[in-house]
Design a binder for these strands. Sequence first.
DNA 1: CTTGACCTTGTAGTAAGCTTTAAGGTGTAT
DNA 2: ATACACCTTAAAGCTTACTACAAGGTCAAG
Lengths: 139, 139
Amino acid sequence: MAGMTIGKLAKSTGVGAETIRYYERSGFLPPPDRMPSGYRVYGGDAQKRVRFIKEAQALGFTLNEIKELFSLTDDPDADCASVNARARAKLAEINEKLRKLKLMKKSLERLSDYCPADEHPLTECSIINYLYGKSGLSA
Amino acid sequence: MAGMTIGKLAKSTGVGAETIRYYERSGFLPPPDRMPSGYRVYGGDAQKRVRFIKEAQALGFTLNEIKELFSLTDDPDADCASVNARARAKLAEINEKLRKLKLMKKSLERLSDYCPADEHPLTECSIINYLYGKSGLSA
DNA sequence: CTTGACCTTGTAGTAAGCTTTAAGGTGTAT
DNA sequence: ATACACCTTAAAGCTTACTACAAGGTCAAG
């Protein structure tokens, strides 16, 4: 597990080596040890941290929010409740996105179902007319 | 309705004047007439076009897709079916986003419900442990 | 010892949709 | 005639999460 180069870490975590360097540059990963040649050397901790990032991203957290989660894990006063609050805040965001997407879906479905989808000219297309504000075509 | 300056058009459509200029620069709005001073002058067509953009954005279309819709309305051979195809393609995209967000939501809800959300130290936090890949809890 | 894969740095580009800045000209109300 | 809001331009900046150079140094295999 010890002594990975950046390429091995990248492969073992499913990201590109450039991404690892980007994470380091941006403060999402701590600067690793170096070989005499200057090559970065990573241990298991780095692997865990990258996996943490990937899992959190899959839950919808941005990199900056993930940095906050890391800060929490470094804070001896932080507790479960503070992490849970972030999870619930993210959940609220996701629910809001879901709400908006469902509205889009409904409108699009209604428009699409109503549209005959044949060779009607666009002046008679209910979708186009809707987009123009339902009051007729000008262009 | 005739003879609006950019500020009036912006106000009447709910966007900023800079946004109007940006739309023009990027080819989403045609270049308007000018007053002798160089001020842009807009009529009702511009208003309709901006509203079209806003409505289409609310349905999830990107500006480039909206430009395509405008091209269709300028194409005498375009018919209802070609517009409907775009609406259905957008619908498919939205459904895919909905699917992913619902997965996130489910995972987050499970993690958050399982977390005691009290003063437990983070080493015992099920959310953090899940993110580190240590937990028996599956998302 | 040579080949080729891998590593280093810094810089810049990508997507999308604006927003801001700087430096200056115009229209109108008092 | 003097404020003051509004207009003009080109260009850069913002956000997020990378991705792609360019120019060079290093390591392992054969």
